[in-house]
Amino acid sequence: MTRVSVTGIPQDSGAPVRAGVPEHGRVPKYYAVRILLTELVDGLEEGQTLPTERDLTERFGAARETVRQALRDLLLEGRLRRRGRGTVVAGPKLAQPLSLASYTEGVRRQGLRPGRTLVDLRSWPCPAALAEELDLSEGEPVWHMERVLWADDERVGLESTYVAVARVPGLSSDFDPDSSFYAFLHERVGITFADADERLETVLATPREALLVGTPPALPMLLIHRVSRDGNSRPFERVRSLYRGDRFSFTARLSGAGPGPA
């Protein structure tokens, strides 16, 4: 069955999620413009430039601020991105698996070139909370390695890794910070991860983080906390990974018997 909302946009009532129009059909003006703008974007190719704000206000018969709000929504959603002084259609989000696979593997699977830029690598005394997570003594030296994450030529995240100096004493001299840390551990140190605990949440970047990743502070970010364990079930690393919410989604394969969701 097809219904037409008050905006004149056809909506498939059998779709998994309707287009955001409530049953009473009354929507804010910016959302009506957003629906029309989404239809326009769907008809363009990745990288194509949108008409100017002035052209869009004339096309949709809406105020410029109304158009700007609709554009901000699609920018935050990752459908659009800024290029110079214009706005272009963005490509699909990077689908990163929630698994023990490294960031490098996940990005390469999607045909993109992973990269990292080292921000900081130093050792410092382990604080009490981190020592408890990594089963270390308080004050024991730990490495802190912070790197900006890239996919092709685009900054997409920020990663902080904490690991005991005693377990990777040559990290600062032997490791190429633009390479996979997991590959280094496996090939050079002989450590393989067995399992990990992860927690995923949404946050806003701090001004410093936004500057490093190259995003507005108001852009929602996806934050993953991970504690990984080695083959002896010993905690090995603590990672804080911050990903752009407009460029990333995460996938997981679930299995098991029993009734489905209620």
Rank of each mutant, 00 (worst) to 15 (best):
L112A: 11
T117E: 15
L118Y: 00
D120S: 11
L121R: 02
L121C: 05
L121P: 00
R122C: 06
S123L: 03
S123D: 10
W124L: 14
P125G: 06
P125A: 05
C126N: 05
P127C: 09
P127I: 12
A129F: 12
L130C: 03
L130E: 03
A131C: 04
E132W: 10
E132P: 08
E132V: 14
E133V: 09
L134T: 10
L136G: 09
E138V: 15
E138A: 15
G139K: 08
E140V: 00
P141N: 07
P141Y: 10
V142W: 03
V142Q: 00
W143K: 02
W143P: 00
H144F: 08
R147C: 03
V148A: 02
V148E: 08
V148Y: 06
L149G: 00
W150M: 11
D153Y: 01
D153L: 12
E154R: 10
R155W: 10
V156D: 00
V156T: 07
G157K: 01
G157A: 03
G157P: 00
E159H: 13
E159F: 10
Y162M: 07
Y162A: 06
V163A: 02
V163Y: 00
V163D: 01
V165P: 09
A166T: 10
R167A: 14
P169T: 07
G170V: 09
L171E: 03
L171M: 11
S173A: 14
D174L: 11
D176E: 10
P177T: 12
P177G: 02
P177R: 01
S179H: 06
S179R: 15
S179N: 10
S179I: 00
S180F: 09
S180L: 00
F181I: 08
Y182W: 15
Y182S: 12
Y182I: 11
A183K: 02
F184H: 14
F184M: 07
H186G: 12
R188C: 11
R188Y: 01
G190T: 08
I191V: 13
I191P: 00
I191S: 09
T192E: 14
F193H: 06
F193M: 14
A194P: 04
D195P: 08
A196P: 12
E201Q: 15
E201H: 06
T202P: 06
A205G: 14
A205Q: 08
T206M: 09
A210V: 04
A210S: 15
L211P: 01
L212D: 02
L212P: 01
L212C: 01
V213E: 02
G214E: 04
T215Y: 08
P216K: 04
A218E: 15
A218Y: 15
L219Y: 04
P220G: 11
M221T: 03
L223A: 15
L223W: 07
R226P: 05
R226L: 10
R226C: 05
S228R: 15
R229P: 04
R229S: 09
G231N: 12
S233C: 09
R234P: 09
E237S: 08
R238E: 11
R238Y: 15
R238D: 11
V239Q: 11
